[in-house]
Design a protein around this nucleic acid. Sequence first.
DNA 1: TGACAGACGATAATAGTTATCTTCTAATAG
DNA 2: CTATTAGAAGATAACTATTATCGTCTGTCA
Lengths: 143, 143
Amino acid sequence: MESKSSSAAFRAFCSQHGLAATHQRQILFEVVQEMEGHPSPEEIYARVRRRIPSISLATVYKNLHLFVESGIVGEVSLHHGSLRIETNRTAHHHLVCRGCKSITDLDEKSFRLEMEHDHISAAFQVERYSIEVVGLCPACKKE
Amino acid sequence: MESKSSSAAFRAFCSQHGLAATHQRQILFEVVQEMEGHPSPEEIYARVRRRIPSISLATVYKNLHLFVESGIVGEVSLHHGSLRIETNRTAHHHLVCRGCKSITDLDEKSFRLEMEHDHISAAFQVERYSIEVVGLCPACKKE
DNA sequence: TGACAGACGATAATAGTTATCTTCTAATAG
DNA sequence: CTATTAGAAGATAACTATTATCGTCTGTCA
């Protein structure tokens, strides 16, 4: 059964990460996995409230952080939270540390990229692309 | 002379965009272009204050927006400002509209990428990479 | 079944950013 | 070269997203 297996996955997730299997956490777990696209905390909050009207937004945030840390969901941008200006106007890419959020420029020559344009709708006007290489910088790796 | 040509570039920029060539704007223009990396508004503000101690943070923000719009600087992430959760855990890339900030997933197969690993420090532990294709979606293109 | 660590909810606090409003100044017409 | 005026700057209030705090409640495990 759907709910059985989903519940089992949730319990496994909680015990793997030493977390209590609470009702709020379980609904969040389910909702996050059934949502498509790139929802914001507010959108997730709105959706969870349909099932638990009394849930707190703080609970949503706290659990989203746990989910991101554990890897069951990702974050679209590691450097949201503050505007960052790009002064290097030549084509280049980014090396991003998921620990300290540092960003290092990579020369365009570091990659050879072939785009299969068929896969991108002709109606979308492509202006540029950039590659984000994500991982851990030497300092953060030590931890 | 350095300052001559910089000043000429600034004046050209202003008249191209119908902007008044004010002192604050000029210092910001210069500072932003001489900064390396990916400075935040606060960092730029701190630096500009060394030359104009009385400048307001609001002025920094207003001018940074103008600079971004005009293209003389870029923004590192088009979707900062709010956490966005990634529920799709399979390898994929993003099609991002710089107008409405919408994000569409692209299949991993859309690209063929060869990384010249020599260019990335061996000390950086690469975990994944993702390609961001930036441009205008059909709806935003109409404007 | 208790005791307790950890989770929840309510809400205050903070950080980043934007809006408002008043004063000032660059652009330009005369 | 001055007067006019649209736009710019500065001060600061307001707003949005996020995090911290704290009292209460509830899974977990002995």
